Measured scan of single mutants.
Amino acid sequence: LTVHVGNVTYHFDNPEQAEEWAKRMAKKYQGQIHVKDGQFRIE
């Protein structure tokens, strides 16, 4: 699973971990989480 934050990409084996990280990053950067094809993108 991949989480994109700006132009930085993080890889996770565990979906719960990826989702948790995406939520934390979205809160930190006050962005929206977009989920597409098993990838999380924070914008």
Rank of each mutant, 00 (worst) to 15 (best):
F12N: 00
T2H: 07
E16D: 11
D13V: 10
E16I: 11
K23Q: 10
F12K: 00
Y29T: 06
M25H: 03
V35G: 04
H34K: 11
I33C: 13
Y29K: 02
F12L: 01
D13F: 07
Q32C: 13
R24I: 14
N7P: 09
G31L: 13
E16L: 11
G6Q: 06
E43I: 13
Q30T: 05
E43Y: 08
M25C: 13
R24Y: 14
G31E: 05
K23F: 10
T2D: 06
Q32N: 07
T9R: 07
V8P: 01
R41W: 15
N14D: 14
R24E: 14
E16W: 11
G31R: 02
G6Y: 10
N7I: 08
P15T: 10
H4S: 13
V3P: 00
V35T: 05
H4R: 10
A26Q: 04
K36Y: 12
E16V: 12
A22Y: 04
A26R: 02
T9S: 08
V8W: 12
E19C: 14
A18D: 00
H4G: 04
A18T: 01
E19Y: 15
N7T: 12
A22D: 00
T2E: 09
K28T: 03
F40W: 13
K27V: 12
V35M: 12
N14A: 08
M25D: 01
Y29E: 04
V5T: 01
F12P: 00
Q39F: 05
V3R: 00
V3S: 00
N7K: 11
N14T: 14
R41M: 14
H4T: 14
G38P: 05
K36F: 11
T9A: 11
R41F: 15
K27G: 07
W21K: 00
E43P: 03
I42S: 04
Y29V: 08
H4E: 07
W21V: 02
K36V: 15
W21E: 02
N14P: 00
K36N: 10
H11I: 10
V5A: 08
A26D: 02
Y10T: 01
A26G: 04
A22E: 01
Y29P: 01
L1N: 15
Q39L: 03
F40D: 03
N7H: 11
V3F: 03
N14I: 09
T2P: 01
H34C: 07
D13T: 13
D37Y: 01
M25A: 05
F12E: 00
H11N: 06
K28G: 02
E20Y: 09
K28H: 08
K28R: 12
V8Q: 11
T2F: 08
